[in-house]
Amino acid sequence: MRVLAVWGAVVAVGAVVLGGGTAVAAAVPEADLAYHGAASMAGGRVDVRFTPRNHGPAAVPDATVRLRWSEPLVDGQTFPEGCARSAARVVLCRVGALAADGVGKRVEMWVRLRGVPSEVLLEIDTVWNGGTVDRNRENDRQRVLVLDSGDAYYF
């Protein structure tokens, strides 16, 4: 009898946990962040400009994007407001709130790389999306090979 009572309590608790977990998962808003822009490089200086976009369906209360280069950056650089260096090859930029089907403020920066490489791989991805779920990670993760040609490479 005691075993049946314990088993019944376990089943009841499991139902509450599963039910609660399902309700919580369903309540998380979904958004689809994307970044589109261009990058160019000449003489070890990389110019980057991109615009964040939220394809929805929910708004994003706050978002942060990471820009990571395959080559280290020169120390002591100045970045645009909302952007900060977080590692030898990484800069984080707060893009802020994005309305559903909204376009954010354009981010423009240039960075100087150590040395003068003939190419650099730039990777851009979301590191914070304000607690929303993004099921389409293909358009908020960009990889761009930028050659030291002065030409713009679009993403």
Rank of each mutant, 00 (worst) to 15 (best):
V146H: 09
P57E: 14
I124N: 14
V46T: 00
A152E: 13
E81H: 12
R137P: 09
P29Q: 04
V3H: 02
A9W: 06
V144C: 12
E138V: 15
R45Q: 00
R141Y: 11
G19H: 05
E123D: 12
D32S: 05
N129W: 01
L98P: 01
T64Y: 01
V120I: 01
V95Y: 05
A99R: 15
A31G: 07
A39I: 11
G104A: 01
A88E: 15
A26W: 13
D62H: 14
P72T: 15
A25G: 01
G102I: 03
F50V: 10
N129I: 11
A5R: 14
A87F: 12
W7N: 10
C93S: 01
D32G: 03
N54P: 13
S149F: 04
L92V: 15
R53M: 14
V111P: 01
D62E: 06
A27E: 02
V107G: 09
S70C: 07
R141L: 05
V11Q: 05
H36K: 15
G130E: 05
V6Y: 03
R68V: 11
W7K: 11
S118Q: 00
T64A: 05
G14P: 13
R85C: 02
R49Q: 04
V107S: 02
V65C: 08
A5K: 13
V116F: 05
L4M: 08
P52G: 00
P52A: 10
P72L: 10
L122N: 04
A63R: 04
D101G: 12
R143G: 10
L145V: 11
L147G: 07
E138P: 03
W110P: 05
P52S: 10
T132R: 00
D134M: 10
V127F: 03
W110D: 02
V116S: 05
L4D: 06
P57Y: 08
A152Y: 03
P52T: 10
G131D: 00
G82V: 07
P29H: 02
A42T: 09
K105W: 12
P72G: 10
L67W: 04
A26G: 07
V133L: 15
L4T: 12
L113E: 08
V65L: 00
W7V: 15
P29N: 07
R49A: 08
T132Y: 09
D62T: 02
L67C: 04
T51Q: 09
R143S: 13
A99P: 01
E119L: 04
Y153C: 06
Y154D: 15
E119Y: 12
A5N: 02
P117R: 04
R2S: 10
P57H: 06
A34V: 10
H55A: 15
R137W: 12
A9I: 06
A88F: 03
A100N: 08
S40K: 00
G104L: 02
L18C: 06
D140N: 12
T132Q: 06
L18W: 08
E108P: 00
S40P: 12
P29C: 00
G8Y: 14
G44L: 11
E138A: 15
N139I: 03
K105S: 08
D62C: 09
D140M: 02
D32K: 12
A97F: 10
A38D: 07
A97W: 15
R141V: 05
L98D: 03
V48Y: 08
V116D: 01
A34E: 15
V16H: 13
V111R: 04
P80F: 12
G115L: 07
T126V: 14
V65G: 09
G104R: 04
G115Q: 01
W7E: 15
V133I: 14
E119H: 06
